[in-house]
Write a protein that binds this DNA or RNA. Sequence first.
RNA 1: GGCGAAGUGGCCGAGUGGUUAGGCAGAGGUCUGCAAAACCUUGUACAGCGGUUCGAGUCCGCUCUUCGCCUCCA
Length: 482
Amino acid sequence: MSLFIYNSLSRAKEQFEPLHPEMVSVYVCGPTVYGHAHLGHAKSYVSFDVVVRWLRQSGYRVKYVQNITDVGHLTDDADEGEDKIMKQARLEKTDPMEISQFYTRSFYEDMDMLGVLRPNVAPTATAHIPEQIALIEELVKTGHAYEVNGNVYFSVESFPGYGKLSGRTDPEARQSGSRVETRSEKRDPSDFALWKKAEEGHLMKWRSPWSTGYPGWHLECSAMSMKYLGETIDIHGGGMENKFPHHDCEIAQAESVTGKPYVRYWMHNNMVTVNGTKMGKSLKNSVNLKDIFRDIDPLVVRFFILQSHYRSPLDYSETAVKASATGLEKLRETLRRLKERRTGSGAFDVEPFRLRFIEAMDDDFNTPVAIAALFELSKALNAAMDSSEGVSEAGRQEALAFLDMAAGGVLGILRQDGGAGEGNGEELLKRLECVMGVLLGLRAEARQNKEFALSDKIRDRLLEAGIEIKDTKEGASWSIKN
RNA sequence: GGCGAAGUGGCCGAGUGGUUAGGCAGAGGUCUGCAAAACCUUGUACAGCGGUUCGAGUCCGCUCUUCGCCUCCA
C-alpha cells in the first residue's frame, strides 16, 4: 500500500516518494492578509491540513511551511495600481503593518475554528526581505534578471522551461489576448517584476541595491521555501488560480539559481464557487468565514469541504451545507453510542472499513470516499449495536480507536473534548452530566408512572436549551445540539 | 483568442471498460406511550450526436453548456 499524489506538473497520479526517507517537506502558499478569510481559504487550508495529517499518520515526519504575505502587492496588474494592504489601511484609516497584523490574527482564529493545525513555520514576507534581495542579486549575477530604472525584472527568455506548469510555454500565446497593457521597459512582455521601486507615498519599502522599494509577489515563496525547506522540496501546494503566473514564476526563480528541481510534487486545489460562479476577494460575492460561523458549526464547514475532492470545484449553498450537517451528526451519534459502553458479546470487525479508508486516502487524498467508508462503518456499527448480541468490548475498542484515528486525527471532523487550557470547560461538563443525571432520573420516574405530560415537558424544555434527549432500550441518552 | 478543468438520479458528490459509491431529501416498514435516533426496503442517473469494443459515465471525435486562468486572488 502506498500513497499516490496527483502531480500538477506531470498531470498524472504518481507514487509518492519523499526526497529524504521519513521526512517530507511541504510548502503551501499562504494568504495575503488584507481582509478576513473566506470559504476559499477554508477549502485550501483544510485540504492541505488533511494532506499533512495523512502524511503524519502514514509515519512521515512532516515539516510544513506556510507563508503569510504581508507585503501589499498591487490591485490590478503587475506594473500599475495600488498596493492592496495600503489601500485597506487607507480605508481603515490606519497603517499597513496594523492591517497585516490584524488580519493575520483573524486568519489564524478562523483556521483554529476549522481545526486546521498550525504550520511548523509561518514566515512573513516582510521578515525575509534580505533573503529576497539576496535571491535577486543571484539572479542578476547569473544573467536571469536585469535592472531598469530601479526596477528589476526576471528575464523569461533566460529560463527555457518557463510556463511548464501551466502549459503556457508559447511566448506568443502567453501574450495574445492578455488583458494587461505591456510595459515598455521590459525586454520581453512576459518578464515579471522581482523588485519594484516605491512610488511617492508608498509606505512599505526597503532599501536595496537597485532602489528603495519592495519585492515582487512571486519572490517571497521561492526565497522562504528554499530557506526553510531546502532547494528541492517534496510538496508545494496552492490554489489552482496560482498556477500561472505565480507558481511558474517561482519555478523560474528557484531553478535558475539552483539548477535543481524546485518541487517534486505540485498540488493544486480547485476553487469554491457560490451559485456556480467564482468567489473571490476582489469580487463582491466572497463568503466570509466569520459570517458563516455565526450560523454553522465550523467543523460542519470542514466536513462539507472534505465531502468533495480537493481537485474538484466546490459549490457552496445553504442546502448543501445543511445536508452535510445532518450527515456529520449521524457519524457523531454513532460515536456517542459507541462511547456509552454498552458492551455485548457480538464480534465486530473494523478491518474492512479501515482498509477502505486507507485505500481512499492513499489515492490522492480521496476524502469523499474515505468519508463514505466512515458512513458504512457507522451503519454497520449501529446495526450491530441494535442487534441482540451487541458489540463486544474488543470490537468496541477497535472501532473507537479507528474512528479516533480516521475521523479525529486525519479528517479532524470530531469535536475535541476538553483540550489543553480547557480545564474549566471540562469541569462544567462534569457538573452538567451530574445535573442531567438528576433530570433524566426524574423523567424516567415520570414515564414509569405514565406521566407523559411531565416527561415530554422536560424533554421539550431541554431541547429549547439545546440539549436533546433520546429514549432508547437502555434508557435515555442526551447530547448537546448546536 | 490562448491555456486548463468540468457537465452524474430531486439536491450535494465519488467513480478512467464489466456484479453497490456515499450523504441529504422523498416513499414504505420495524422499534417506541409519543417524539427523536437507529435499522430494513425503495431510486435502473451519467449534456447531445456519432465512433471504438463482446461490453462505455468510464476510451476517441464532433456539438452544446458551464467554470477557472491569461490582472491581485486559496
